[in-house]
Write a protein that binds this DNA or RNA. Structure first.
Lengths: 154, 154
DNA sequence: CCAGTTCCTACTTGTTGACTATGAATTGAA
DNA sequence: TTCAATTCATAGTCAACAAGTAGGAACTGG
């Protein structure tokens, strides 16, 4: 499960992307997206340290995306807030860690399955950008069936 | 991330599947798979309540699979021990729950992405069975590239 | 009746997620 | 130069949960 923190981070970045251009204050985003202001402040600090957003302080300060929205992937954000995408540390590429009680990693049947899951998940999340997400939003969704979002689902 | 509990449950079921036939005791599985005995006991109880295994007590008691190994999927086990596969409750099919702060679920860009992730994940995990996993294990892995496990990976 | 097993309830212990509080540092406007 | 609005940093709280442990009751074949 994605943490609340991760969900908030994504919502905030989407919000920034939708109102591109001038800096946007934490308080504005917070009320927009129904996020506790102080908590969001901490999250935005993380995003800044990770160089996903830029900040300016003082009078009309706030945050904006540090790069174009089509260069920020879901995968990057989620790895930042929630750590590995993989279901097991030993199946993670970015956060690899051996299981302490694992006898023979190469022969581990569980690991093999989890690795294929991780492949599919990161395939989607590292391909899908913030820009993609806002592109197929509310109204647009019905008209076009673009490539990135695979299943219409419900 | 999968919980330790979930990993143990999978290991235990694989162990049962490999030694099919007569009942196998918790203590045996525990030493085989490096799992704390008492903890495994609790896990096995859960698996029994979920009707994944059968138990007999007393003298030469123990556990065996309640069904053929090719009718037990990773998905079922993981949902039992770890809850939803989906990254968000609102993107789960089996454990659906609305996000409390969600304004318009149908228009939610994040949900759409997470739903497609969930589709891929459950596609794999609900298709892959315990039998599949032991089929492509140690030696077998090199010779045949069967269908279920997609990526060799590393 | 007994030894070996499962089964059940409760407890402990450490970690973490989700905030909250307080205030310092910065910066444009008045 | 002062002021108000912002970001930034550190620390603290609180509840929930994961990962075990403890102790013993219930059952069952020998």
């Amino acid at each position: 499960m994605l943490s609340q923190r991760g969900r908030y981070a994504l919502k905030a970045l989407l919000n920034l992307a939708r109102h591109d251009g001038e800096p946007r204050q934490v308080s504005v985003i917070a009320t927009d997206e129904q996020i506790p202001r102080k908590y969001l402040e901490a999250i935005m600090s993380d995003l800044r340290r990770a160089e996903l957003v830029d900040s300016t302080r003082g009078w009309s300060g706030g945050y904006r995306l540090a790069r174009p929205a089509d260069l920020i992937t879901f995968g990057e954000v989620i790895r930042l807030t929630d750590g590995p995408l993989a279901l097991l540390p030993c199946a993670s590429r970015n956060f690899y860690r051996r299981c302490d009680d694992c006898v023979d990693e190469a022969a581990c049947a569980i690991r093999r399955v989890m690795a294929s899951v991780r492949n599919e998940v990161s395939e989607i999340l590292d391909r899908t950008t913030i820009a993609d997400a806002i592109a197929n939003s509310p109204a647009a969704a019905a008209m076009l069936d673009s490539e990135p979002a695979r299943a219409p689902d419900a």
